[in-house]
């Protein structure tokens, strides 16, 4: 069963295809580490990223967003599924099963930016050493040439090249995140995975960082996987948005569609929960009861059914597949066609 996500008209062929990706962590117990079950951190996720586009990934904590990103980089070896990177030279490469040489090559084209700008930089290295490291390791530039490239990268992310001899502790959170972005861009990647790049930053610094990321994207034709739990930020930066719930993607759609006409009750619940900066629109939340289930022991059927205001008996024992509900919009709900769900501006 192959999901065709390419129904949206795109001029290019995809850059990255995540196909039926799974990462199950064993839950062990006792002295002998007996496996008693699995945390299905990522459970059969398929997503596609196109060149120059941003795929936003939202979901509450523990839904598997970070695990997904690290599986794409193969910092985590997936349990099953494939991650096809369409490389200019090598053609399609399955990152999940690539040999070391191919993996090295693909990793130059895929880089990652982490959530915490304070742990992302080695405190004992200068900014120059930090950004030049990928250049040296991949034998792209050394010495003077590397230094010039670092200066260029610093300028690109809006920092002054004179800063390159400083240590990370001399920078604020926002500046550090710029350094992290500069390091990620050092190898001229095609795809950057951004794991909550602004959630540790102040509001005023967040806007600067988002503008920078968008600007770099259009100048360098970058593709982004933008992970966040801030729905406002994801809406602002994404072309397409995927919503995860307990390891599964419940809805993928072009941004405007997802926010205005969601097709999954969980998406609707999320949209209604956002505290909106508009005092005239007070209190019209869809009260969804309960808490996010424990991913080691999720409810059967549709994981969302115990909290879903529209749940029917079938939801408790049959997991709905992700299917195309309207052109380009995919949802995993038995009743997507019948339900008339509210968009973000209807609350």
């Amino acid at each position: 069963m192959e999901i065709q996500l390419n129904a949206v008209p795109h001029a290019d062929r995809p850059l990255l295809e995540i196909l039926h990706l799974k990462k199950h962590y064993p839950v062990t117990r006792g002295l002998l580490k007996r496996t008693v079950g699995y945390v299905k951190a990522v459970d059969d996720v398929s997503l596609t990223i196109y060149p120059g586009q941003t795929l936003g990934l939202v979901g509450e904590s523990g839904s598997g967003k970070t695990t997904l990103a690290h599986s794409v980089m193969r910092g985590i070896t997936p349990t099953a599924g494939s991650v096809i990177f369409h490389d200019d030279h090598l053609g399609p490469v399955d990152v999940a099963s690539a040999d070391p040489a191919a993996l090295r090559h693909v990793r130059r084209n895929m880089q990652m930016v982490f959530q915490d700008p304070f742990s992302s930089l080695n405190p004992r290295m200068t900014v120059l050493d930090i950004i030049a490291e990928p250049l040296q390791v991949n034998q792209i530039a050394k010495g003077k040439a590397a230094q010039e490239r670092v200066a260029e990268l610093l300028q690109l992310v809006g920092l002054r090249p004179e800063y390159m001899r400083r240590f990370p502790h001399a920078f604020s959170g926002g500046q550090r995140q710029r350094i992290v972005v500069a390091r990620a861009l050092a190898l001229n990647p095609r795809l950057v995975l951004l794991d909550e790049p602004t959630s540790a930053l102040d509001v005023s610094i967040q806007a600067q960082t988002l503008n920078l990321l968008k600007d770099l994207q259009s100048r360098l034709n970058l593709s982004y996987l933008f992970i966040s739990h801030d729905l406002g930020v994801v809406e602002h930066v994404s072309d397409t948005v995927a919503v995860m719930y307990v390891g599964r993607v419940v809805e993928v759609a072009p941004t405007r569609k997802l926010y205005q006409q969601p097709k999954h009750p969980y998406t609707e619940a999320l949209l209604s929960s956002i505290p909106k900066p508009d005092p005239t629109r007070k209190k019209r939340r869809i009260a969804i009861a309960g808490e996010i289930p424990n991913p080691a022991n999720p409810p059967p059927g549709c994981h969302f059914h115990p909290r879903c205001p529209y749940a029917q008996p079938i939801c408790a024992h049959e997991a709905p597949p992700l299917r195309e509900v309207t052109p380009g919009q995919f949802a995993a709900c038995h009743f997507s066609d019948e339900l008339n769900l509210k968009g973000v501006n209807d609350f």
Binding site: M73, M110, N122, V137, N138, R183
Partner: peptide, 19 residues
């Protein structure tokens, strides 16, 4: 994260340990 980043930029184990 900085060690993960180093790994993702193809640093060898030796380099990760020493640097």
């Amino acid at each position: 994260d900085f060690v993960t980043a180093a790994r993702y930029s193809n640093c060898s184990d030796w380099r990760i340990i020493t640097r």
